[in-house]
């Protein structure tokens, strides 16, 4: 579960997870569910995803940007994610969903990009934490 952040021109989310793998997987799910009604998406196919960065923050931006690219260019709606390998420089995993069908999948908003604005990705005593603002 994640918390939606209000921002004058944009939208964002905040979430917590026990591991970085979980944090990145849940962040990708949060991104998709802000753009679409994700309940109607069925897991019919999967897609490999990978991104690189130079710290946890840039890794998160590049990972979520990869999900956006798959959505917009390949028109693949992914609802569930698994992260199989992660370090502050690289993340790899898989997304599960189905081809985007405008008849069945209701879009909520277009996400233009993942920003560095007020971005936080860090390990805290109680677990991993992320705050991400999206440009819409």
């Amino acid at each position: 579960m994640f918390e939606v952040l209000e921002h004058t021109a944009d939208i964002g989310f905040r979430l917590r997870a026990p591991t970085p793998e979980e944090l990145f997987a849940r962040a990708a799910e949060a991104l998709v569910s802000l753009g679409f009604e994700s309940e109607g998406i069925e897991e019919r196919q999967s897609c490999e995803l990978a991104a690189t960065g130079w710290d946890w923050e840039s890794l998160m931006v590049n990972w979520l940007s990869e999900v956006l690219y798959v959505l917009d260019a390949r028109r693949l709606l992914l609802k569930r994610f698994e992260v199989t390998r992660i370090s502050p420089e690289a993340v790899a995993g898989r997304g599960y969903g189905e081809p985007w069908n405008p008849e069945r999948h209701r879009a909520k908003l277009i996400i233009k990009g993942v920003t560095y604005h007020q971005l936080v990705v860090e390990q805290r005593p109680e677990g991993w934490y992320a705050q991400v603002i999206l440009d819409i």
Binding site: W54, S58, V61, N62, L68, Y69, D72, A73, G113, V114
Partner: peptide
């Protein structure tokens, strides 16, 4: 549209580094 969004994303990543 998506073309401009991706160009911004690509170069933000490059410039950050």
């Amino acid at each position: 549209r998506g073309l401009g969004h991706q160009v911004c994303t690509d170069y933000l990543a490059e410039m950050g580094a």
